[in-house]
Amino acid sequence: MSSINNDVLPAQLFALDQAIWPMYLLMVSLSGRKTRQHSWNTLCRTNSTPPGISLEQILLIFNLYSMRPGNRVIPLFIILGAFLLSQSNVLFSFSFTPLLLGLPTWTYWFIGTHVLLIVGLYLLMFRFRHK
């Protein structure tokens, strides 16, 4: 335990919480209507919001991603995120030393971005499969 710096720990937890919450919301949004309703009820009952995110913000996300099927906010949000990340190589300095197969390190970052785009497109199709 001596290796843990107690001053840094809350910040780490905060960062972890911030990172996990969008994933949680994404998973809930992909689940069925009943699960989403249950999650929302639990959230309201316990008021267990993560640090830095207010209940109103979560309410906003849930309102954006309403219960009806066919809502496209989250898929479009993911696609927009993929596009914004695709522009990052000219804004930030990535390492370009050869990594796996000798390809530059940053190419793997973009492969991840690419996968995000595919996920967004897949969800878009999934949400509209009834049409």
């Binding site: 695709s86 190589n89 973009f110 690419h114 785009l117 595919i118 497109l121 878009l124």
Partner: peptide, 15 residues
């Protein structure tokens, strides 16, 4: 990276 990303993003407008 540019060509792979660019041609994939065309999937959005194609869709």
């Amino acid at each position: 990276t540019m060509i792979a990303m660019g041609t994939s993003f065309a999937g959005i407008s194609m869709y």
